[in-house]
Simulated assay, not measured.
Amino acid sequence: MSTMQRTEDGSARVAVVIGGSGGIGSAVARRLAAQGMAVAVHYAGRAEQAEKVVDGITAAGGTAVALPGDVAEPDRMTALFDAVEQRFGGVDVVVNTAGIMLLSPLAEMSLDDFDRMHRVNVRGTFVVSQLAARRLRAGGALVNFSTSVTRLQTPGYAAYAATKGAVESMTLILARELRGRDVTVNVVAPGPTATPLFLDGKSEELIGRLASAAPLERLGTPEDIAESVAFLAGPGGRWVNGQVLYANGGIA
């Protein structure tokens, strides 16, 4: 483990990673733990994967716990934040990687699918951001997740990009609303990243074309994205606030 990041009272900083059982979320949880943070690994329906993330962190000498909850339900998320504060004494970093992506031309997408994405991506981000705004200690950081598709206008992504556009708007406004709190609020917007969420349903030919679109000529990895989060959540990112960081290898 790297040098411990500590709060003013000398205790280890505490991070909550929403969606910590997923591809990017698990990489973020491991990376923040490597910075010396105690990490709460949130999961919705994948308890086994979350426990594997926790086991990996603890095996490397870190501190982590897996906690469940529906990201769109305030009572469940409040209970999660309460549990983290009771166990670790407070919350210093909140990273919300939870999201779903359902693709279809706008004219063909069902309202049920649109509402499913809105519930997780928009309502879920609102619930988590509201709790982060109320609970983060001075020197803290909130990092929400968008997508580089908001700049690419890719057919089939209209509904998904619309939910992430909402995430960007509410996050950047929240950064201004927290004036005087010594809390940074930013968005990471990944490009094509080799996660199950991204790869599901795509042909090898399509994946190859997407990989070659960036000047670096490859897909991003969860670890690439985790490095961006670690920067924003760590001491080097304290002067970055109210921004969207496009972590996409130059695709847009």
Rank of each mutant, 00 (worst) to 15 (best):
M1R: 13
S2R: 14
M4S: 11
Q5W: 11
R6E: 11
G10F: 12
G10V: 11
G20M: 00
S21M: 10
S21K: 06
G22Q: 03
I24L: 15
S26T: 04
V28A: 11
A29L: 04
R31W: 09
Q35R: 13
G36Q: 07
A38E: 10
V39P: 03
V39T: 05
V39A: 07
V41D: 01
G45F: 01
G45P: 01
A50I: 08
E51I: 00
K52T: 15
D55W: 00
A64E: 02
L67G: 09
L67F: 11
G69Y: 11
E73H: 15
P74N: 00
D75L: 15
M77P: 15
M77Q: 15
F81V: 14
A83N: 13
V84T: 09
E85V: 13
R87H: 06
R87W: 02
F88H: 14
V91T: 12
V93S: 00
N96P: 09
A98F: 02
G99Q: 02
I100F: 00
L102F: 07
L103F: 10
S104L: 06
P105F: 07
S110P: 12
F114S: 08
D115G: 00
R119G: 01
V122P: 01
R123F: 04
V127Y: 05
V127K: 06
V128T: 13
V128D: 08
S129T: 11
S129H: 03
A133H: 01
A138Y: 03
G139W: 06
G139A: 03
G140S: 00
G140E: 00
A141G: 00
L142D: 01
V143M: 07
N144R: 06
N144K: 09
F145G: 03
S148F: 03
V149H: 09
R151C: 04
L152W: 05
G156T: 06
G156K: 05
Y157P: 00
Y157R: 05
A161G: 13
A166I: 07
S169T: 14
S169C: 13
M170C: 02
T171G: 10
T171Q: 08
L172W: 07
L174P: 00
R176T: 13
R179E: 13
R179Y: 14
R179F: 15
R181N: 01
R181M: 03
V185H: 02
A189D: 10
P190K: 08
P190N: 11
T193I: 07
T193S: 08
T193W: 03
T195F: 07
P196S: 05
F198K: 06
G201E: 10
K202L: 15
E204S: 12
E205P: 03
I207D: 02
G208C: 12
G208E: 15
G208W: 10
S212H: 13
A213N: 07
L216T: 15
E217F: 08
R218Q: 08
L219K: 14
E223F: 03
E223Y: 05
A233W: 02
A233E: 02
G234H: 05
P235V: 07
P235S: 12
G237E: 03
Q243S: 15
V244F: 10
Y246S: 14
Y246K: 11
G249V: 11
G249R: 09
I251Q: 10
I251L: 14
I251K: 01
